[in-house]
Design a protein around this nucleic acid. Structure first.
Length: 125
DNA sequence: ATTCTAACA
DNA sequence: TGTTAGCA
């Protein structure tokens, strides 16, 4: 498929798909006319990239761990620097999870308050 | 119509 | 990221 279809199927703007390519995250083949040709399996790959990006992980690190995603993680050369970066990213991720949970709880309480508010005056909805 | 590269905001 | 320009 070409970039337009991949963009539709992944929800990622074609502008970003070209950017991922610049960052070495995906490597589509080229047609004779120079158009990028993406294999079907790249759909999942792009979705994984998006997930990582949405988790706040920089493309530079994604490039290193992407090949392991969803597969048996077999590391032959344990890179201490990469390990340190992943440790840092995991910490940041934990912080964001905590932040989201706090807001999730806040919404839960607010919604509960909304559901109870009308009962006394206007009756249940 | 769709994609391509490059570049600017 | 969005958008624009000039091609193919």
């Amino acid at each position: 498929m070409r970039i337009g279809e991949l963009a539709r199927r992944t929800g990622v703007p074609h502008r970003m798909l070209r950017y991922y390519e610049e960052q070495g995250l995906i490597a589509p083949r080229r047609l004779d006319n120079g158009y990028r040709e993406y294999d079907d399996h790249l759909v999942k790959r792009v979705q994984k990239i998006r997930g990582l990006l949405d988790s706040g992980i920089p493309t530079r690190i994604i490039g290193n761990i992407l090949p392991c995603l969803g597969q048996e993680i077999v590391v032959t050369d344990p890179d201490p620097e990469l390990r340190a970066m992943l440790l840092e990213q995991r910490t940041k991720m934990a912080e964001r999870i905590a932040f989201l949970e706090a807001n999730h709880d806040a919404l839960t309480r607010y919604i509960a308050a909304m559901d109870g508010a009308g009962d006394a005056v206007n009756g249940p909805r």
